Simulated assay, not measured.
Amino acid sequence: MINLSIYRFTLLNKAKEQQVLSFFNEEEDLLDTMNDFCSHIHKNTKSYTDVQGKYRTFSLANNQIKDVEKRIITGYFDSGYTGEYGQIKDGKTSNLKYDILKGDLFSKDFFYLIHVPKNSKYGFFIFQKKENHGVKMIFENAFNSFMRLKGVSNYFLQLKQAPARYLINNFLKFGKLKEFRLIDGTIQSAIETLNVNLGREERVIKLNSSTNNQSVKNVLVELFDNFSSQDKIPFMNQGAYDEITFVIGHNGVSKTFYIKDKEKIRTSFNVTSMLEFEDGEATFESLIRISLELINSAA
């Protein structure tokens, strides 16, 4: 299974103003800066310790490819981490080749594509998602560290999820509603003298799989498509809420949708059926092609 995650990025100054990516800092093109960054991490592996105490590394598996005409940079990341025990065995005989020890780096390569449009304040970052190998935070942190290293400390990169609309549409159109949540904001204590903020209230409605929930789903999808104000969200004469989320299952995958805060929608999608394969591996060319299609959908 090949999953791709898509993010939209901006470059902000200290006042948090978005910059034109192809002409920031009065003269620099972020496409060239990103290319320099990729060359840097290829030669200087980024190492860090995650919240679980595992030692991790982040680098490039090979030299990046810069396409000036398409304004993209592509290649494969190399991500590794320690803390796993295991064995490598021969696929035909099951004979042991060698042991994986706790201090060994368990490393994987995975595809990425960076797109820096001309005269735009938004760029796109797509990477192949693999279990136990996060990219978003380390990429963001490593790039911002690189900018400080080169003496540009007044700009920083910010990544946010960018759902590809046509893949989301498949969930909304063909998926089955599994549950939804009606969320109210902070609740104050009924005892005035305490003045305690008790958090928020959530009503969770889990739906019976054997029940036809199409009418409820239609209402939620309508709200998702059309509601964008900062007011409370009215829902089926049941009151108004600060946020409503709902879970839809499609092709064995469940995805949570947010009616107001759409940037929280996880943007990892199974694109296996859209790719071409050679010797069981997705071709580099087809990964680029589908990535550009995802960008066109999310732009």
Rank of each mutant, 00 (worst) to 15 (best):
residue 199 G to S: 04
residue 222 E to N: 12
residue 200 R to C: 11
residue 228 S to M: 11
residue 182 L to E: 06
residue 218 N to A: 03
residue 190 A to L: 14
residue 222 E to V: 00
residue 180 F to C: 05
residue 209 S to G: 13
residue 185 G to E: 02
residue 202 E to N: 10
residue 217 K to E: 02
residue 174 F to T: 00
residue 208 N to W: 06
residue 177 L to M: 06
residue 208 N to D: 13
residue 213 N to E: 02
residue 209 S to E: 14
residue 192 E to D: 12
residue 176 K to T: 15
residue 189 S to D: 15
residue 193 T to F: 08
residue 208 N to T: 11
residue 204 V to G: 10
residue 211 T to R: 12
residue 188 Q to T: 05
residue 186 T to Q: 14
residue 220 L to M: 09
residue 222 E to A: 08
residue 176 K to M: 13
residue 186 T to F: 06
residue 206 K to F: 07
residue 226 N to E: 02
residue 178 K to E: 14
residue 217 K to I: 03
residue 187 I to F: 07
residue 227 F to Y: 13
residue 186 T to C: 02
residue 200 R to V: 05
residue 223 L to Y: 03
residue 202 E to I: 12
residue 201 E to L: 08
residue 221 V to C: 14
residue 184 D to N: 14
residue 175 G to F: 00
residue 188 Q to V: 02
residue 198 L to M: 08
residue 225 D to S: 11
residue 204 V to F: 12
residue 195 N to M: 15
residue 203 R to L: 11
residue 216 V to R: 04
residue 220 L to F: 04
residue 189 S to V: 09
residue 197 N to E: 09
residue 212 N to F: 00
residue 179 E to V: 01
residue 181 R to K: 15
residue 190 A to T: 10
residue 190 A to P: 10
residue 190 A to H: 11
residue 193 T to I: 10
residue 198 L to R: 06
residue 183 I to Q: 03
residue 190 A to E: 15
residue 209 S to A: 09
residue 200 R to P: 00
residue 210 S to H: 12
residue 227 F to H: 07
residue 200 R to W: 01
